[in-house]
Each structure stands twice: as C-alpha cells, then as structure tokens.
Amino acid sequence: MKVSDVMVFDISAVFEDETVERVIDMMSKQFVTGIPVVDEDMKVVGFITDNDIMKASIPSYFALLQSASFLPDTNQFVKNMARIREHKVSEYMSKPPIVIKEDAPLIHAADLMMRHNIKTIPVVDNDGRLVGIITKIDVLKAALEGGLE
C-alpha cells in the first residue's frame, strides 16, 4: 500500500512570514497539532507544531526542573507568548522538513514517524510541493486493516 492510498488530500498550510498567532488560531479551529509551512510555489519549507510553540513560550529553565507545579503562577509563560505572538513562523518551525512522496510505501511513513517521533508528515509531489498530509492514525488504521505492505 502507498502513502497516496491513505493520506488526507488537504493542503492547509502557513507561509513562513505568517505569525505564531495565526498558526495557533488555525490549529485550534482545524483541530490539528501541526501544520506544513510552504513558500509561494507551495513547496514545503518547514513544519510547525504546537510543541514548537510551547517550547518557545515556556521559560527555558523549566526543562531543568523536575516539576513546575510549585511555581505560583503562569506569568512568565503568558509574557513569553505575548512576546512571540507576532513573530514569524519561520523562527520556530522545524527545517528542513521531514516529507514523504505520495508514491512511497506506507511502511516508509511509519518508519519516519517512529524515527523522528512525529505524528504528521507533509506529502509532496516530485517537485516538493504540498499535496496532502499523512498522520500516525492514518498509518495505524491501514495496518489494522492489513494494508501496510
């Protein structure tokens, strides 16, 4: 089975110069946790997730703590978010993006998801232009139905 057999033919994406605020707005309205970043030719140049934005807005010393639950409030988090909301997507996206071609075997998508610990991969054509996305649940569903090979 190929990626094109189970992928979602949706090319919702953001541009590199769009803001963090717009990405959060899109994610919340579309119930997704990651969005491909494209240029004006629809070539995929990056991928941005809720996790990328969370990392950018949570104070870096949090990573050194075993728990942040003793902290009295979320002021620093809110302040950081206010600081980055107008920032460009290009500052926080992952690049180069992990992409997959529509005619690739489905097992290749599963392998990429495991190796890079990602839930969604942009699907591209031979010119690297976005044609859709494939999610972990699409792959799992195909496996459940016996179609991974």
Partner: peptide, 14 residues
C-alpha cells in the same frame, strides 16, 4: 473528503 480523493481541500477556517 469521503466523497472523492480527486478533491483536495484548502479551506480557511473562520
């Protein structure tokens, strides 16, 4: 999406 794989969607959510 269910109707056909020949339709690629690119909607703006409001």
């Amino acid at each position: 999406r269910k109707a056909s794989n020949l339709i690629t969607t690119n909607f703006v959510f409001i």
